[in-house]
Nucleic acid binder design. Structure first.
Lengths: 346, 346
DNA sequence: TTGAAAGCGCTAACAC
DNA sequence: GTGTTAGCGCTTTCAA
């Protein structure tokens, strides 16, 4: 029996609209109308078609449909790195928004390799996706611009400045200001930054840190320690900070990952968080929420970022003439256990 | 200029094989042959076609090609939960294996909702994927079995026992034995387990724990504390364990997530890891590798799991008659900083 | 080596 | 309401 099913599958083609039509005793147009739930079909025909389709196990062939409609109702999402949990939540938003509008979401990935990213994008174009969302892309601008001439594209997780591409970003400058203001509000003056280097949003966060410090009259206390958004970068950065002459009472790490590295360095130095040193991250990843870490951080509305991006591409799929835009969303502060007022002097 | 490009896109259709043929002064058959790099084309025609395609920005239409070939060269991957980093690495393996064999990988997700999973699978079938990989599916068996009658399916991350489905699993029993043997080898006798409940592989890990304890003559020391693979489950479980009459000297948590929760409970209780209590996890996730956590754990060959699964579906795509199989891969021990010999008595 | 023709499974006019 | 027809863009015989 189980052997015969395998053999049957090999031999038997999937039923087509014609098989259903024959079985229901109608023309294939009627079947097509029923499948697309068009109104103008008699209830008798409708019932016959539904029954026949059911009996045959008929499933509409999206390939054929796409060919004749000249559109697939697929939106491709190229995620540069699926290991980056940041994008999981973005994908949630993307999915929900697509489903609402009758589109499927197809994910591909470039494994953080710009070449692989380009070929993933190319695949999406060959598959005739109706639109594309680039999540954290590191492709060269010209490659993206070229694709954008052919198909609506939106980008998240990388602040592209290309005219033909919708971009959805968190307001990183504002997020950093929020973080620094929180620390200053607690009474800190020596607030150091562990930088994010060339990472996405790092420059804006650095600028936000600088301007919030300046606004509080703490320009002289500004201290930017190099970093790279990694755990070990955060660890090394914090070590340098703690060994320095004037130890900061608060450290603002540019992302959660590096904040966790910094946390480790602080503890290794025999200091307590937040009693001796306050620590902030950025991103509000799952890491920050672990009770063992419980990091004060800045939350990016990831879900909403995805939603926005999908809305933007669908908008331009349906009105091809429209111009792409830049969408900026507001971050917010999430206070947990790694920040507190500085120890009183003496 | 930027306005005109948008308008152009709206008006201009993508070039087809006929446009290329006309431009190159050959028939569309020749173009087709060149695009598929068939041999029997004169170098003159080949050059003309290549040039024309280049000039026109021609890109083969995979939809039309799939329709006539009656296959898409797409393998769909339904990931139950993209938030679970476990699958990221599996996807790496999946991708690499697919690319090697000339297939594309298309990811969809069910957001841990069995209903959404089913509809994601349904989409893959409508899109006429040539095969499907289910990653961590929680769909009812009959739904999977029904799909398996139509298309080759492989499953990872859930130990299905369905005849028509290839299954690739880590040998969880063996992994648990490895873990317990490591602790016993260190000199522990009171080794407790924080269970994984109904989670994938939890039953096998529990059985492995039991049998390794029994094999070492420590059957009387067996202690299974309820858990659910979550951080808070691990936290609660460890608290109960530490408050009990005979405090274990080692805790084996069924996965890294719950081990991190347990770690937090141990520290909160004023005890040190590994001096007072040794702690083990399972899965070797990124969490375990954080220096702040540095968890001894069991590594599952995730990459290889993905590779195997893709190989299995492609094998059955290309030879539809073949039977599905069960593939079991070996885990290995990763020693980090949370395990050590127990404190000498007195 | 090339071209003509048929057809993949479906939708979308259009006529009845 | 329903059927007929003409394609969608491509591959694949089959002849030449």
């Amino acid at each position: 029996m189980s052997r015969s099913t395998a053999v049957e599958r090999a031999g038997r083609r999937a039923p087509t609209i014609i098989d259903v039509a024959r079985r229901a005793g109608v023309s294939k147009s009627v079947v097509s109308r029923v499948m697309r739930s068009e109104a103008s079909v008699s209830s008798v025909s409708r019932a016959a078609v539904t029954a026949a389709a059911e009996e045959l196990g008929y499933r509409a062939n999206a390939v054929a449909r796409s060919l004749v409609q000249r559109r697939t109702y697929n939106v491709g999402v190229m995620v540069s790195d699926l290991h980056n949990i940041f994008f999981a939540e973005v994908l949630d938003g993307l999915y929900a928004a697509a489903a609402d509008r009758g589109y499927r979401t197809l994910i591909t990935t470039g494994n953080r390799d710009p070449l692989a990213e380009a070929s993933a994008l190319e695949q999406l174009l060959e598959l005739r996706a109706d639109g594309v969302v680039l999540a954290g892309s590191r492709m060269p601008d010209e490659a993206i611009a070229a694709a954008a001439r052919v198909i609506p594209i939106a980008a998240v997780g990388s602040d592209l400045r290309l005219s033909g591409v919708d971009v959805v970003v968190d307001d990183d400058h504002k997020g950093a200001v929020l973080a620094v203001e929180h620390l200053i509000g607690l009474g800190h003056r020596d607030v150091a930054l562990i930088d994010g280097g060339k990472g996405a949003g790092a420059a804006e966060r650095r600028a936000g840190y600088r301007s919030a410090m300046a606004a509080a009259g703490l320009g002289a206390h500004v201290r930017v320690e190099p970093g790279d958004f990694t755990e070990s970068g955060g660890y090394e950065g914090a070590r340098r900070l703690l060994n320095g002459l004037r130890r900061p009472t608060a450290i603002f790490a540019s992302n959660d990952q590096s904040a966790v590295g910094a946390l480790n360095a602080v503890i290794e130095a025999g200091l307590n968080v937040p009693e001796d040193v306050s620590l902030m991250g950025y991103d509000n990843t799952a890491l920050a929420a672990l009770r063992h870490i419980s990091l004060t951080t800045i939350h990016q509305p990831r879900n909403q970022i995805g939603e926005m991006a999908m809305r933007a591409v669908v908008r331009r799929i349906e009105k091809p003439g429209l111009a792409a835009r830049r969408h900026v969303l507001a971050p917010k502060l999430v206070v947990r256990s790694t920040t507190a007022p500085p120890r009183p002097i003496g």
